[in-house]
Design a binder for these strands. Structure first.
Lengths: 244, 244
DNA sequence: ACGTGTCACAAGTCATACCTTTGGATTTTT
DNA sequence: AAAAATCCAAAGGTATGACTTGTGACACGT
């Protein structure tokens, strides 16, 4: 009835279509905040969102509830929805990380993530040496061998893929749920290092050796060696960041 | 009119009151999932939530949207709202961490957090040595002195407080937003170690010395020393966890 | 200037209606 | 009997409109 008519008039009726209107709005507003277009202190209203994106109050609320749960905004009666100061954001939320990596301030996010990698991966290697399954240990050794082969053959694309899987598997097998949750972010950093040539990446034989050392130490359950070999891998990264 | 009557009948009308009905439901369902009462694969429906908690569809949806954004659940048409497998949870979301620490499975969460501390704090110390402000450096030195005084006087309560502030300040001044975001969790771990006597905690003079070493190294901008002194502090923790 | 009160604004909640998708049962076909 | 097509009802997704509640901001009186 009248409802349908209004919908047809307002929107393309189909409106959100498959990619869920709700998600499009979330992406738009979330990226705007993460990228700084909507600075902390900026104010929105549900009404504004409804008109801006042609959505209903329900969807506008859903979206804001998600942003609120990430601490990107808070909402107050009579005031509206206010962008939080950056300090309070849930910077570990994968959505937020993604938005920030897609923004023009991606460098800050990359260096935070890289430093996090430097911190976590050695301990993850030690954990894997203690707690990985037999299959995981074997797979790590096999991946290290792949890395040498691909690295020496200069197949950078395949090398990167194997490298990502190596680090991902390490995090997955270390037995710490929080470390495991970082796998996507580590993969992102590795990919961008290669893709953006941000850190010109030519597999050095020393790095390849270190990967083999990590794999061997994990395979033999030697946590101490696994940890220091992983630190050795990351020293390269530290140097590139100017942290050494 | 009729609406009001129904509200009055249904609920205490006041219903949600100050602590926001919405938040109560979020806490209830969130804790149930985090604590395992609602196992992965369990199914809910909006309708069930409405009746269970005497809330409207809007509030039920808001709640689920938040849980969905934490990846604790996903929702599918015709099926309902399904609890996700644990592997996919956003385990860095402070709300989830809180719920898990409040559940009877808190031990897993504590050991994950402790391992995270072990990984992050040395790098944070190095970062602070490079990037802390003059005020922060001075405050760290002063806190280390407090720690010695309080530790030697046996004032464990005040010691814990100063210890928390020491570690919190270190994370805050290291210049890495992601590390900063961990401050609440580190504080939680430190508190519980003392409170629960989980790790009988009597400030050993060696630990006190190490705190002073960290502060001094940060103050003088010596990142290498700051990092290894912090590792020294955490070795005690590693031993207690059986990781050495 | 300084409390005090009023008011309008915007979020919070609710009830309802309609749509869209889809898992599973039913039927048809091979 | 097995596989494919069809249909149906269940459940989330979205839209609306009404009402409640908290609260800045402005006006007012002292």
């Amino acid at each position: 009835m009248s409802t349908a008519t209004l919908q047809d008039a307002d929107n393309t009726h189909d409106g959100g279509a498959s990619p869920a209107m709700h998600e499009r709005v979330l992406e738009a507003v979330g990226s705007a905040i993460a990228g700084g277009t909507l600075a902390p202190g900026s104010r929105l209203t549900l009404d504004f969102l409804q008109h801006e994106y042609g959505i209903s109050r329900t969807v506008a609320r859903d979206t804001m509830k998600v942003l609120e749960s990430m601490n990107l905004v808070y909402s107050r009666r009579r005031v509206g929805i206010v962008v939080q100061e950056r300090r309070l954001w849930n910077v570990f939320d994968p959505k937020l990380v993604r938005w920030r990596l897609a923004s023009d301030r991606r460098e800050i996010q990359y260096s935070s993530l890289t430093e996090l990698r430097i911190a976590v991966e050695p301990i993850a290697a030690a954990g894997a040496a203690r707690r990985a399954s037999a299959a995981e240990r074997a797979r790590l050794v096999s991946l290290a061998a792949d890395l040498r082969r691909l690295g020496e053959a200069g197949e950078l694309g395949a090398f990167l893929e194997a490298d990502i899987e190596f680090h991902r598997l390490l995090l997955a097998s270390c037995g710490n749920e929080m470390f495991m949750a970082l796998d996507g972010m580590v993969a992102e950093v590795l990919t961008s290092r290669t893709r953006q040539g941000l850190m010109p990446f030519k597999p050095r034989s020393e790095a390849i050796q270190a990967h083999e050392d990590v794999a061997a130490a994990v395979a033999s359950g030697d946590a101490i060696t696994a940890e220091s070999a992983m630190q050795h891998i990351l020293n390269e990264v530290r140097n590139a960041m100017g942290l050494h």
